[in-house]
Amino acid sequence: MAEVTEEWQPKIVMFCCNWCSYGGADSAGMGRFQQPPTVRVIRVMCSGRMDPVFILNAFLEGADGVIFSGCHIGDCHYVNGNYKATVKYKFLKAMVNELGLEDERLKLDWISASEGERYAEVVTEFTEQIKKVGPSPLKPEGVI
């Protein structure tokens, strides 16, 4: 496990849906809401597209935390994609817990395109959480 220093910044992978959360990230930027530079955003068309394999791969490639986010329940651009995301989240959460990864490392949140401030809040909060639990034990050697 890498040594935790004051300067250590976690690496977080965030999957945003094209229609809401990715827009939310845009609004956060346009509204100049301050947020830590820890998040790498990957755009997917819908939170329902989130495959467990993406999340597991992110952890294996060295992510300290993974967020996936989509439209609020009821607002999905594809009618029910975010319900499907909740089912997968439930399974993934149980799986990640049994695996022995900390509960804080995986998060599902709903952020709409107009919620720039909320986007910044979620990112800040999650970064703080990850800083508390430290680097992921699944991080390969040599990855910072």
Binding site: P52, L56, L60, P137, L138
Partner: peptide, 24 residues
């Protein structure tokens, strides 16, 4: 299809995927 031995840094992705897949 998504995993190979060369990608298996600390744990086998092949099995991780199957863990989730077989849960139900």
């Amino acid at each position: 299809d998504f995993s190979s031995a060369s990608d298996t840094y600390k744990m086998s992705l092949f099995h991780l995927v199957r863990f989730v897949h077989l849960m139900d």
